[in-house]
């Protein structure tokens, strides 16, 4: 059993992985990745019941995770590797030719831990609902988790899926919104305001849980536990999780500019200096 301190060490190492991965290929999405570190580290280290050593697509009797905002693949890959899905050295192949670690996650290259391709936004909630329905048909008690960007909620398919989930009582699913308030062109509020997201999801029939501290590992775990208690009650569950894009690197925080830009050599060193090695670089 990992202590909270262990998880914090892991978070720091994952942040180093993210920065080194995107720096190595001068591309990728560090901002959202850095903001979702605590979420994914918690999910794969205690929250989910999953089998990293023997990955099976059907994940029978396991909890399953779907990353809908596929562009934050660096954090997903780092956490998968450091949870035992594949060798951490493979992180060095990110976005390179012939790699299983494509720019956006895919099942097509056979990377353990990935169950759906994502990248084109707005599709993950529907897929997750399908997986949740299959769990119910199979009398499988596994829980389905999904993560979505807040900008992603501008896609209409999300709301088709939300309508379906509540109308059909998909109550073995915990969706989470990475509510960092930023997207490529700027602040979500200015690009296309989401309005009152809590009221919107409530109106769509969800149980809405707000976590205002999505970069606190303790809070992330606490709200996952709260969400789990809401399962099986005839309503889908969603966590609105406030995070900071670029969390952990001072010059990447408070702006949308690091959504899809990689640091140069100098910026990388400046960033890594704020995140000491904990478990060893890949």
């Amino acid at each position: 059993m990992q202590t909270t301190n262990d998880l914090k060490q892991l978070c720091t190492q994952v942040r180093r992985d993210i920065l080194r991965m995107v720096h190595a290929v001068s591309s990728g999405h560090p901002g959202g990745s850095l903001g979702c570190v605590e979420y994914l580290v918690a999910l794969y280290n205690g929250v989910m019941n999953h089998n990293a050593q023997n990955f099976a697509m059907d994940g029978k009797n396991e909890d399953l995770f779907f990353l809908s905002n596929g562009h934050i693949s660096p954090v997903f890959y780092s956490v998968l590797a450091r949870s035992g899905y594949f060798e951490i050295n493979e992180l060095a192949t990110f976005r390179k030719l012939n790699s299983r670690l494509q720019g956006h996650p895919t099942t097509h290259e056979g990377l353990p831990g990935v169950r759906i391709a994502s990248g084109s936004l707005g599709q993950g909630l529907s897929v997750a609902i399908g997986a949740a329905l299959a769990k119910k048909l199979n009398n499988d008690k596994g829980i389905i988790y999904t993560l979505h960007g807040d900008g992603e909620l501008q896609e209409g398919q999300i709301w088709e899926a939300a309508m379906y989930a509540s109308a059909n009582k998909v109550d073995n699913l915990i969706a989470t919104v990475d509510y960092n308030g930023r997207q490529i062109d700027g602040d979500v509020e200015n690009v296309l305001s989401l309005g009152n997201l809590k009221l919107k999801f409530e109106a769509f029939g969800f149980t809405v849980i707000e976590n205002h501290e999505g970069n606190s590992i303790e809070k992330v775990i606490e709200y996952f536990n709260l969400a789990k208690q809401q399962l099986g009650r005839g309503k889908p569950v969603i966590i609105l999780m406030k995070t900071e894009m670029g969390q952990g690197v001072d010059f990447m925080m408070g702006t949308h500019k690091w959504h899809g830009s990689a640091p140069n050599d100098e910026q990388l060193q400046k960033a890594l200096a704020q995140l000491p090695v904990t478990l060893g670089d890949y």
Binding site: D58, S126, G130, A134
Partner: peptide
Amino acid sequence: GIAAGLTIGG
């Protein structure tokens, strides 16, 4: 999307 997800459960 739901159809894709259902295949994951066989």
